[in-house]
């Protein structure tokens, strides 16, 4: 393993069999250590395919992906890559393997051949960091969707990865579960310095990301901080994506002549801006 601590996609292209179009098309991206990168795009934009290229679930048709210096096309490094860049998926039910929570968290560790005592230590720690310790002995089908997703996160965490890739991990959850899962991942990013690649189509979930990559037709359509990206209201709408409601309202008011800032995201910012203009 080299000391490179980035994930690099270099001019990556991927096409599914029988598809007439590339799902990912000459996409390049650098993900730096400790970053929270959100990948935003509508269904069929290629964002999920891109996610699966990052840990060698798919291999690029052309171009290459380097995970901490390891080429995903290198068979020798396959398990190192997947250990370094863990992944959780959309459907909470379809990624839990075992019939008891702690045994599911153990699954990755068993595959890596971790010793028993070390395994127990890591499972306890992982469950603790997603606040699911008291569910350790429960059966997964008794848990809510959000709880199942946190178990999936624990399963990845136990493998001690440097990066967590979440492929639409909240799409099937209710608002409460969604918030809990996102909060958990944000906390892991801040406290443990785990790099996060957060794939989603919900704009609400990306407003606090370090960077937002907007993907459309398998290409990078926009890239920047959430403020930079959302301030392009027209462009976002063209891409069939939402912008925060306050950003949109501010834009509409600006068109009517109100000199409001163009990078408003939240209700509080909007209230302040409007008050600044209108208060006596």
């Amino acid at each position: 393993m080299s000391d490179d601590n980035r994930i690099l996609a270099e001019d990556v292209t991927y096409a599914y069999e029988e598809a007439d179009k590339n799902a990912v098309n000459h996409l390049s991206l650098e993900i730096r250590e400790g970053e929270f990168v959100a990948v935003l795009g509508h269904n069929g934009s290629g964002k999920s395919t891109f996610a699966k290229l990052l840990n060698a679930l798919y291999l690029p048709s052309s171009g290459r992906v380097l995970v901490y210096g390891m080429d995903t096309a290198d068979d020798e490094q396959l398990w190192n890559i997947r250990q370094k860049a863990g992944m959780i998926f959309q459907n909470p039910d379809n990624q839990i393997v075992a019939t008891v929570v702690r045994e599911d968290v153990a699954f990755g560790l068993e595959n890596l051949g971790v010793e028993h005592d070390e395994m127990v230590r890591r499972i306890d720690e992982a469950l603790e960091s997603v606040h699911m310790t008291k569910y350790a002995e429960k059966e997964p089908h008794m848990l809510s969707g959000g709880q199942k997703q946190r178990i999936a996160i624990a399963g990845v965490l136990a493998m001690e990865p440097s990066c967590l890739i979440a492929d639409e991990a909240t799409a099937m959850l209710d608002p409460k579960g969604r918030k809990k899962v996102l909060d958990t991942v944000r906390r892991l990013n801040k406290e443990k310095g785990i790099t996060v690649v957060w794939i989603t189509h919900y704009m609400e979930e990306v407003t606090e990301a370090d960077r937002v990559v907007v993907v459309s037709d398998g290409e990078t359509a926009m890239i920047g901080t959430p403020r930079e990206v959302f301030s392009k209201v027209e462009k976002m709408r063209e891409l069939h994506l939402d912008v925060p409601r306050m950003t949109a309202l501010a834009q509409d008011l600006r068109e009517d002549g109100l000199p409001l800032r163009d990078d408003i995201l939240t209700v509080e910012e909007m209230a302040e801006e409007v008050a600044r203009l209108l208060c006596p």
């Binding site: 306050m246 309202l249 209700v267 509080e268 909007m270 209230a271 409007v274 008050a275 209108l278 208060c279 006596p280």
Partner: peptide, 11 residues
Amino acid sequence: RLCQALRAKGL
């Protein structure tokens, strides 16, 4: 929420 925040600011 915006409406209430603005009222709170005296609008």
